[in-house]
Design a protein around this nucleic acid. Sequence first.
DNA 1: CTGAAAGCGCTTACAG
DNA 2: CTGAAAGCGCTTACAG
Lengths: 334, 334
Amino acid sequence: MSRTRRPTLEAVAARAGVSRATVSRVVNGLPTVTPEIRAQVMRAIEELGYIPNSAARSLVTKRTDSYALVASEPPSRVFSDDPLFSIVIRTVSVELEAADKQVVLMLASSPRSHARIERYVAGGHVDGVMLISMHAADPLPAAILRMGVPVVSYGRPAVNVEMPYADNDNVGGARRAVEHLLATGRRRIATIAGPPDMIAGQDRLTGYREALRGSGRRSIVAVGDFTRESGAVAMRQLLEDDPQLDAVFAANDLMAIGALQALRRAGRRVPDDVAVVGFDDIEAAKFTDPPLTTVRHPVVDQATAMVRLLLTPPSERTTDRVILPTELIVRDSA
Amino acid sequence: MSRTRRPTLEAVAARAGVSRATVSRVVNGLPTVTPEIRAQVMRAIEELGYIPNSAARSLVTKRTDSYALVASEPPSRVFSDDPLFSIVIRTVSVELEAADKQVVLMLASSPRSHARIERYVAGGHVDGVMLISMHAADPLPAAILRMGVPVVSYGRPAVNVEMPYADNDNVGGARRAVEHLLATGRRRIATIAGPPDMIAGQDRLTGYREALRGSGRRSIVAVGDFTRESGAVAMRQLLEDDPQLDAVFAANDLMAIGALQALRRAGRRVPDDVAVVGFDDIEAAKFTDPPLTTVRHPVVDQATAMVRLLLTPPSERTTDRVILPTELIVRDSA
DNA sequence: CTGAAAGCGCTTACAG
DNA sequence: CTGAAAGCGCTTACAG
């Protein structure tokens, strides 16, 4: 517990025989310091092992150089077991690190934690906020927006809030997935949709419907919550509703994996009896049996784009919304 | 960008007609304030929407109420695709949140980021550090220890550093897995080990060896890096080295999943021809074909124990190392 | 180019 | 129980 008492700017100044202002200038790399003095100060910093106190610094600069990544953690724990979550976190960390910024992770699980996050942001702890996986009813985005703190969203935010975001073409990706099923002669194409209050879920369902429209096929819908388990449950439901179905489009890979298992247990062969297409192209999609045909969600690019939006001042931005293309990856399941 | 100017303690004091010291006492819940004055101050706080400035506060208190979770991110990206990582993050967040603390996530990917993390911790940004997935050669643990900042580790740290940690019984778990293979009559039992510079990998290999010792079976070892891909590669290698093998213990589930795929492609049936046991019991283990027999790694409990160690002052700790039991979960693959 | 001084917004002995 | 005052460790106009 006896944390070593760290040397201050004052100590460095004394040692180098200059004023605190000068040391501050050297530390912050201001050009207006003679090379000799700079060298002197540098030596003192080195000898003392000086490291600026961050609280003192941000008290005056009003900056913290750290940004919050706020993930809503709904009861279904959607993201906690979702590998995309890890990838977003990692990408955001790496991008921000390149800009010498820090990431503070915040999970918005309960109403209580929502209040905490609001206070945290309002308290000036961070210079900006990234929102991920927000549900429609979430009051947080509006609250943060109101504080005047820069904020961006991973994925199109729920209606009624106006903020920059990076998304992928969920509608188009889903449409292509279903068109592929149509093109390969499938006649009864079901879908396992995501939670209705999450935009990605809505958009993928829209894509499914768009593809079906005018094909003469009717839509067969079950709803999951993006977990494997829910995918298995939904698949069983679907099989009961329409034992003749010969294809299913799951709104994410986790649910597709659940569906694969349910189909296996029901004695259906994939893709012979039932074709399965997922969405996301998570690592596991290559390792299912059979390997999963899916739509690639450009997670890294999307997270990177979000960070760029966050770090670019509004005045310098050419756009407020980045939509990345998705791509159908055909493997063996469809 | 026009961040609203927030009211200060000063403003609250003026409005409530009291001194700044009194407002500070109310804000911090000190008991030495008359109920009437407290009520007055509360009202002023409410009306003004006052929220304490965190930089100013920690400048004087020397506390930040936030803790760093530092994950080493080796080239193999072990953790980025590992669901355990997400679970640890989530558990740590929830636990710390319950104690009204914040989590700052830091990825120690490059030497450059190591330096940044050192500066960050030394700069007083956090009150303590949690280390996860450190490799043997990592200089960070020793550096942080030297600063006198409280630090704990998820998993037994590499030799030569002395710090509290929470781990699970990797050796015992691996031993039990292999004993199960022996008990079910397997004769040529291979293992896919983890990276030799990671303690969990070493310990699980030790367990494998212990179980084999005296059984008359020789050990057959391939090495992976905890990814699915490496599991598949190692399995192919193993099959080449010993086409007669009838069982394999993979040091984690991700590699077991890779092994399952390699076996399928090689035309081996699981468990009929080759039994497979993994380690961790990640969610996906229930959804493989066949469902994976594995050793349960109590991730949530281990992360919780780590946080407790971090938050408990050394003087109040009854122990510095918590070892959680593991459990063999028998499904269909072995 | 360099320094003296003010000030960022809090907390905390110290008096009263 | 309350207030005046000092101080935490920096940065930043302002002079010179």
